[in-house]
Design a protein around this nucleic acid. Structure first.
Lengths: 339, 339
DNA sequence: CCTCGCACGTTATACGTAAAACCTCGGCCG
DNA sequence: CGGCCGAGGTTTTACGTATAACGTGCGAGG
C-alpha cells in the first residue's frame, strides 16, 4: 500500500507503523512485542503486523536496549580466534544463546594475554555479561569490579572473581594419556609443553609430573606452532641420556610438529617414538599417522558456559560444572621399542 | 572519594558523575566526549574526569547509540567460523575497525548454527553495516532491501546488491597452479572440487578448465573435510583410463585428505602423484609433505572490506578492489613421473 | 558608560521503544 | 438506574546520552 521499501533516508519507526495502521505507537509496541493478548483485538493486531511488514519495519535495537535496561548479549573473550577450539566454544555458546534470544559477540583478546586497553570500547555492544575461555586471570581485570557477571571457562576454579566456572577435566585427560603410554611399556618421556602459560597448560604439566612420578621425564617448551614444535623436538632429542620413546604434547599442533621433526631425524612414529596430542583438532586426523589425542567437548563447554551465565542473570546460584574428556587412541602411539 | 565501586544495584550514569563533580550532566558529556576545548576550563574537566573514575563510570552504549543514530559496529557474515580463513578475515576487519572506533560482531551463517530465522535478532547489536565473506548471494537476501550498506568479499562482482566489492584474484591463483604443474610435465589431472558451491569455488573450477583446455582433466567433488576428500580421491583413482599424475584440490583440507588416501593406495607424493591445495592454512605446513598451495591474503581482505564499508558510510564512492594471491611451491608437487 | 564578545557553563530537547497509568464505551448485575 | 467490569485501546513517561540553544559574568573597546 504505502512505500514498499524504506529506501532513501530514515528507517521507519514504530510511530510510522502506527500512523500507517491508524493506531497509537503503544499499540504497535504491544502487538509486535507479542504482549497484546486481551489488550488488542485480533483484527487490529493483523492490521499492525501488515503495516509493519509493508514498511519493512525493524525495531531500533539501541532504543529497545535503552528502554529495557539490558541487551541480551554476552561477550565471549578468547585468546585467539584462529584456534579451532575457540571457534567451537563460540559455536556452542551461540547455539544456546540463540535458544534464549541472546546474542554473543566475540572479543579475541589482543595478543592472547595483552592488557586489553579497553574491551568495552572495542566490543562496542552494550553487554549483559561476559564469558571468558582459557584466559589468564589477570587479563580479565578490566571486567572485574564492573557490574557484569563473569563466567570463566577452562580456568582456575580457585579464582573467586567469577560468578561461575565451567571446567574440563584436563588433569584426567593427561592421566589417561600417561596410563595409555605406560601400559604400552614406555619409560622415557618428553613433555612438549606450550610456551604460553595459562591454567589449562599448568594443569597438564602438573598432572603429567604427578602421574609420571619416578619415571624419566624431560620438559621442553615451544610456541604454539608447527615450526616452534619442530625446533623444540630437535632440542629434546639432542639432549644427552637415553633416547625418549614417548613424546607427550600439550596440543595437537605441537604433536604434528613433533612428528615432522622426528621423521626428519630418521625416526618412525610410532615404531621408534610415540607421540600424543591434546584437543583433538581437525588437524589430528589430517596428518599421518593420525594423532592419539584427548578429545575435548569444545561446543559443550561453550553451551554450559552460556547456560551458566543465563542462570546467573536470572539470579540462580550456579553450581560448579566439570566436563569429562576422553582419550582417543590413534596411530601415533604404539608399544615402546624393545631395547 | 565517594563509593569506589558501583557495587550493588544500578550503574552510575553521567548524571551521577555530574552530581559528584558539582557540574551539569551536559558538562560531563562534553568532557568525556572530548569536545570541551574552549567550552570548559581545564580544572573543571579534571574534576569531572576524576569523578567519573572514582565512580567507575562507563557510558551506556545503548543510550549513546540511540542518541547518535548509529552504532559504529558492523556485522561480519561468514559461512563457518571453524575455518581458519574466516577467523583471519575477522581479525583483519576488526583491526581496521578498531582504528576507527568501530566494532565487529560475527554472524556465522546458518550452516554452522541453528536456524537463520532472523539474522538481526541473533546478532542483537544495532548495526551500521554488513560485510559478508564468501557467501552465496541468496544467503544474504535478508540484508537486501534494508538500509544497511552491504560489502561483499570474495563474491561474484556482478552482484549489484552490494555497495562495494573486494575480491581475491582466485582465477589467477588457479592459473598459477596449473602453470606450475604443466611446467613440471603433468598432463593427466584430477580436480578435487568442493561439494559446497559458492562463487569462489566456481571461479576455481572455471579457471582450471580454461587453463587446462585440451588436457585430460577429471572432476570429483568432496565435502570439505579430510574423510570426504579421502573417499573422493579413492573414487578418482579407481576410474578407468590413464592414472592421473596431478591432483588439484580446491582447498588445503581436501589436499591433506588426498595425500593420505594416495599413500594408503601405495602411491608416493610427489614422486608418483603431485597434489596442490588452496588457501595456505596452517595445516599446509603441518602435514608431510608440506603442501604446494595458493596463499590468500585473508587478513588483508578483511581490512579492505572494513575500509570499503567505512568509505561507503562516509558517502565516498568505493572503487572495486582486487587483491593478488601467490602460489607457494612446497613439497607436495614435483615433476611428473617418467612414463 | 554601554555594549560586545569570549570563556565557561547550564537548560532543554530529541533519539525510539516499552510499559504503566489512564481513558471510553457497552453490557450486565443488583 | 447506578455502578462495576472488561475489552480495546490511548496518553504519558522514562531509559541515558549528545548537543543545540541559551544564559552570565567580566574585560575591553568605542
Amino acid at each position: 500500500m504505502q512505500t514498499p521499501e524504506p529506501l532513501g533516508g530514515a528507517r521507519p519507526t514504530s510511530r510510522d507503523v502506527a500512523r500507517a495502521a491508524g493506531v497509537s505507537q503503544a499499540t504497535v509496541s504491544l502487538v509486535l512485542g507479542d504482549k497484546w493478548r486481551g489488550r488488542v483485538s485480533e483484527r487490529t493486531a493483523e492490521v499492525v503486523r501488515e503495516a509493519a511488514r509493508s514498511l519493512g519495519y525493524r525495531p531500533n535495537l539501541a532504543a529497545r536496549n535503552l528502554r529495557l535496561g539490558h541487551t541480551r548479549t554476552a561477550l565471549l573473550v578468547v585468546p585467539a580466534l584462529t584456534n579451532e577450539f575457540f571457534a567451537r566454544v563460540y559455536t556452542g555458546a551461540a547455539t544456546v544463546a540463540a535458544r534464549h534470544g541472546f546474542g554473543v559477540v566475540l572479543y579475541p583478546s589482543p595478543d592472547g594475554v595483552g592488557p586489553a586497553k579497553d574491551p568495552f570500547a572495542s566490543a562496542r555492544a552494550a553487554l549483559d555479561g561476559v564469558i571468558a575461555s582459557s584466559m589468564a586471570s589477570d587479563a580479565l581485570k578490566a571486567f572485574r569490579g564492573t557490574d557484569l557477571p563473569l563466567v570463566m571457562l577452562d580456568s582456575d576454579p580457585a579464582d573467586s572473581g567469577a560468578a561461575a566456572h565451567v571446567n574440563l577435566d584436563i588433569a584426567d585427560g593427561m592421566r589417561q594419556v600417561t596410563d595409555h603410554l605406560l601400559a604400552l611399556g614406555h619409560r622415557h618421556f618428553v613433555h612438549l609443553a606450550s610456551a604460553v602459560t595459562s591454567w589449562t597448560f599448568d594443569v597438564r604439566a602438573a598432572a603429567l609430573t604427578e602421574a609420571l612420578a619416578g619415571v624419566s621425564v624431560r620438559t621442553v617448551r615451544a610456541p604454539l606452532d608447527v615450526h616452534g614444535a619442530m625446533a623444540a623436538t630437535e632440542r629434546a632429542l639432542a639432549a644427552p641420556g637415553p633416547r625418549p620413546t614417548a613424546l607427550v604434547c600439550d596440543d595437537d599442533i605441537l604433536a604434528a610438529g613433533a612428528c615432522k621433526a622426528l621423521r626428519r631425524l630418521g625416526l618412525r612414529v610410532p615404531e621408534d617414538v610415540s607421540v600424543t596430542g591434546f584437543d583433538d583438532l581437525a588437524l589430528a586426523t589430517a596428518v599421518e599417522p593420525e594423532l592419539t589425542t584427548v578429545s575435548l567437548p569444545a561446543e559443550r563447554i561453550g553451551e554450559r558456559g552460556m547456560a551458566a551465565l543465563l542462570a546467573v542473570l536470572s539470579g540462580e546460584p550456579p553450581q560448579p560444572d566439570d566436563l569429562p574428556v576422553t582419550l582417543v587412541p590413534r596411530g601415533s602411539s604404539g608399544p615402546a621399542p624393545a631395547s
